[in-house]
Nucleic acid binder design. Structure first.
Lengths: 214, 214
DNA sequence: CAGAGTTTTGAGCGAGTGCTCAAGACGCGG
DNA sequence: CCGCGTCTTGAGCACTCGCTCAAAACTCTG
């Protein structure tokens, strides 16, 4: 039953990364968390890096699937950020978001991790982009910003916040508050009167043109 | 001339972190970059961690001082983001922003780094907050969002982007574009007519009240 | 039950880590 | 010139790392 050991290792890898950080994640610590011999890491995955890459994919698919319905029910930007805050709180203790932050950090040093990390992050980004496209439909925001870019910005901002919380927990909370407040801005634009709407669009067009010149 | 060696080590530490990543940063690699013996790390700083902490403070003060005038000349949100993009581009090759991203990543694993990293980051946050307060003066945004929290959010988002670029360079560029476009939104609110302004403020007040209930 | 194939094990290699230490090099007042 | 205190050095200790390997332990087929 090779499946059993492989999955134990994948799970052990994710748990180790979250609980001990990427720095203390090694074949031996992963194997200990999985309750198997460390040589099995190399027998089943070839190297620690490949195990981590596989675990990243495994964890990302698992988590995104788990939260898919939640994402589908989001109707406003503020709700999206609130879902983000919930993810942040719930998953902090042993979640995939924290794993991604760790892997993203580790990938800077260990370039072999980069592709798998990017792929795992991309799953989240895709989900966010879908929500953004739906949420911003009809809003002036959608006409002048790229949903894909915005999704990437949101995702990386979230990862940054996750890491920031690691060094200054109180500051991170205030940052999330501010983002939520800011999200209210975009909503404001949606239910302004027609006159104000026209003014907003005209102003945005001017801004876009100015940026286009460069 | 003890100053000479100490500064060589501080500089070597920063260079090593940026060039090799926090993972390959050790007493020996730092000493090699500084061109001195590795034992001097422990003679002058007691431990590698304390050297890194000192280097973080050193680098942050140096860089913030260097960019202070640039920050002072920023007049709009879009200009602030543009300055961010410039920092991002210029400093990527050997800059302190990249150092902060590395240290922030390392601090998750190595808690001893956390205080110094937070302190270094705080210098940037302070600068951003000052700019925000000035830029948003009189705007409806300022009334309903906390400048400190927003500054923290911007700073961590920036760090997140920096890390994201490490695994997906093309995606990060689009994310910055989107943020810049989004910044245009806030500016729009500033030069709307008085009627639209009143509508915006009323809508924001409602949102703030709703959030207050929770 | 025998044998083949797969999976698991513990020991071990070379390299790199943080850190210590005795010994030397250096400058400088007496 | 000596002696003293600061600074620097290379060797070395105990440890962890990724990874390998031969042997043992399983599982399944004939």
């Amino acid at each position: 039953m090779s499946e059993g050991t492989r999955e134990k290792l994948l799970d052990g890898a994710l748990r180790t990364v979250v609980e001990q950080g990427i720095g203390k994640t090694s074949a031996r610590t992963i194997a200990a968390a999985a309750g198997v011999n460390q040589a099995l890491v190399f027998y089943h995955f070839g190297s620690v890096d490949e195990l981590l890459a596989a675990a990243c994919r495994f964890g990302a698919e698992q988590r995104v699937a788990r939260y898919r319905e939640r994402f589908a029910s989001v109707r406003t930007l503020a709700e999206l950020l609130e879902l983000g805050r919930e993810l942040h709180a719930q998953e902090r203790a042993g979640g995939h978001v924290a794993v991604l932050a760790q892997l993203l950090a580790g990938a800077q040093t260990h370039p072999r991790l980069a592709p798998a990390t990017a792929a795992g992050l991309a799953l989240w980004i895709e989900e966010i982009e879908r929500v953004l496209a739906r949420v911003l439909e009809g809003s002036p925001v959608a006409e002048f910003t790229d949903a894909g870019g915005l999704a990437r910005a949101l995702a990386s901002a979230f990862v940054g916040l996750e890491l920031y919380e690691g060094v200054d927990p109180r500051g991170a909370a205030g940052a999330l508050d501010a983002l939520e407040q800011l999200a209210g801005l975009a909503e404001v634009l949606e239910d302004l009167g027609p006159v104000a709407q026209r003014a907003v669009r005209a102003r945005l067009r001017r801004g876009a043109a100015k940026r286009g010149e460069r």
